[in-house]
Simulated scan of single mutants.
Amino acid sequence: MKFLLPPIALLAAACLVPAHAEVPLGTVAGSDVAFEGMFQVDGYWFDNDVLDLDARPDGRDRATGVRRFELALKGSGPGGLGWVLGYDVYNETYLDNNLTWSFGGDGAPKHTLLFGQSKQPNSLEELSSSRNNDFIAKAAATSTFATGRRLGASWGYDAEDHGATVSWFGRNLDDDAGGAGYGARGWWAPVREDGRVLHLGLSHVDRDTEADALRLRARPNADMAAVRMVDSGALADVDRLATTGVEAMWISGPLKLQGEYFLASADRIGNPGYDASGGYASALWTPGGGTWGYRGGLPRTSVADAGLWQFGLRYDQLDLDDGAVRGGRMEAWTVGVNWYWRNNTKLMLNYVDVASRRTDPATGARIDDDPSILEARVQLHW
């Protein structure tokens, strides 16, 4: 179901939705059931250089529309059992759909077994909640290398200041992201206090490819851009892809510093291997004394009162050039501001400055393409 809702109507709806994280629906068969949702409307204004990032037949230099409309039912209990059923109505894709069993805790390490579809254990940015993203678009490296939701099973271990997750996965429920594999992520917080956290993490995902094919490419930090600025092209001889990620985060009161680096290595059949890499570093500042929580190896944004402001800066880079594969290189600076108008309503404004270079496959000529983008988002969540 594809539709548009003007931002003014979305803001009006925000006034009617209860300002808390979820809507309780009662208890069914001993399970406390709640309803959650998130609705995002985006607007992008492109200052093109070489490529037409909008690429619409009407020649407009902007794109506006719904980005996500996510709905989820969640249940907790009894006996440590939990479940979730999630669907993105606008993009017509399945979200988390799984059953969990947790045991331990209360001063002892907590163990969680999960069966079904969930995000795989890689990337601090990918695993963090989408409703509290620091910037409108994830870093190009995260979007390119992180393995998203897949069907499978996992075991998680959480001892509060350290933990780990190990998973096995196959396709997803939409049947469009093949390649079975395994993943693992470990994290350690040598400093973990109220308003002060040092987080270090390491992840690795190794997966098969669908029909020995692989293509890595990325948009210029604009989710609705019509074209990719860097592109490895279709590689038809890749047996497996292994991606290793390192992550670090420092929270000190109103300041959060965060960074990740990824190295992806493709095992090719009859050709030298192909390596691609990328990463980002970001800073987010919350004036007025706000800070972040920390649980399960992830930052937790707390919006106790309406009117919370956040100011952010991010640098990210992506390198898809290696040997005969000339996928291109891209760097981007993003400046952003977030305002939680109400506890359940978030307004975002980003400015992205991109510098890229790639090789024209037809002529072999180098193409420098340096656009800029103004981005806005209105988000309602409950």
Rank of each mutant, 00 (worst) to 15 (best):
residue 114 L to P: 02
residue 83 W to G: 10
residue 190 P to C: 06
residue 305 D to A: 13
residue 144 T to G: 00
residue 7 P to C: 07
residue 112 T to H: 05
residue 12 A to F: 09
residue 94 Y to F: 15
residue 273 G to Y: 09
residue 329 R to C: 08
residue 146 A to V: 01
residue 275 D to Y: 02
residue 170 G to W: 01
residue 40 Q to C: 13
residue 116 G to D: 03
residue 220 P to S: 04
residue 90 Y to G: 04
residue 124 L to Q: 03
residue 39 F to Q: 14
residue 263 L to N: 11
residue 261 Y to R: 04
residue 105 G to W: 11
residue 290 G to I: 08
residue 285 W to G: 04
residue 121 P to I: 01
residue 92 E to S: 12
residue 229 M to T: 13
residue 304 A to S: 13
residue 305 D to L: 08
residue 40 Q to N: 12
residue 345 T to L: 15
residue 253 G to V: 07
residue 188 W to K: 01
residue 108 A to C: 11
residue 120 Q to D: 10
residue 145 F to H: 01
residue 130 S to D: 15
residue 279 G to W: 00
residue 250 W to L: 13
residue 160 E to I: 12
residue 49 D to Y: 08
residue 224 M to N: 12
residue 235 L to H: 02
residue 173 L to N: 04
residue 227 V to R: 15
residue 323 G to S: 09
residue 349 L to A: 15
residue 174 D to S: 06
residue 201 G to T: 07
residue 14 A to S: 15
residue 93 T to I: 12
residue 48 N to D: 14
residue 1 M to G: 10
residue 373 I to D: 00
residue 121 P to A: 01
residue 281 A to I: 08
residue 285 W to Y: 14
residue 377 R to V: 03
residue 279 G to F: 00
residue 239 D to N: 13
residue 21 A to Q: 13
residue 162 H to M: 11
residue 48 N to V: 11
residue 10 L to H: 07
residue 147 T to F: 04
residue 311 F to H: 07
residue 285 W to A: 07
residue 98 N to A: 08
residue 354 V to T: 00
residue 153 A to K: 05
residue 269 I to Y: 06
residue 87 Y to W: 07
residue 122 N to T: 15
residue 287 P to C: 07
residue 42 D to H: 11
residue 341 W to R: 09
residue 113 L to V: 15
residue 219 R to V: 04
residue 194 D to R: 13
residue 322 D to Y: 07
residue 87 Y to H: 09
residue 321 D to S: 11
residue 228 R to D: 15
residue 165 T to H: 06
residue 286 T to E: 14
residue 308 L to D: 12
residue 87 Y to A: 02
residue 55 A to E: 10
residue 84 V to M: 12
residue 273 G to S: 06
residue 357 R to G: 12
residue 52 D to G: 02
residue 243 T to G: 01
residue 18 P to V: 05
residue 364 G to P: 11
residue 15 C to N: 15
residue 211 A to Y: 13
residue 151 L to W: 02
residue 201 G to K: 10
residue 35 F to S: 04
residue 307 G to C: 09
residue 226 A to K: 03
residue 40 Q to V: 14
residue 25 L to N: 01
residue 359 T to R: 14
residue 13 A to N: 03
residue 163 G to W: 12
residue 115 F to H: 05
residue 311 F to V: 15
residue 259 G to C: 03
residue 31 S to E: 04
residue 44 Y to M: 14
residue 305 D to M: 10
residue 267 D to C: 04
residue 91 N to I: 10
residue 316 D to A: 00
residue 311 F to G: 02
residue 82 G to N: 03
residue 249 M to I: 09
residue 168 W to K: 06
residue 207 R to M: 13
residue 182 Y to F: 13
residue 193 E to I: 05
residue 343 N to C: 05
residue 16 L to H: 10
residue 25 L to K: 01
residue 192 R to P: 05
residue 61 D to R: 14
residue 167 S to M: 09
residue 28 V to H: 09
residue 185 R to D: 04
residue 240 R to H: 06
residue 93 T to G: 12
residue 378 V to L: 14
residue 217 R to C: 08
residue 137 A to H: 08
residue 240 R to F: 02
residue 226 A to M: 11
residue 311 F to R: 04
residue 68 R to F: 10
residue 169 F to I: 11
residue 175 D to H: 10
residue 253 G to K: 04
residue 81 L to D: 10
residue 44 Y to W: 14
residue 132 N to W: 15
residue 259 G to A: 08
residue 143 S to C: 03
residue 146 A to Q: 00
residue 234 A to Q: 13
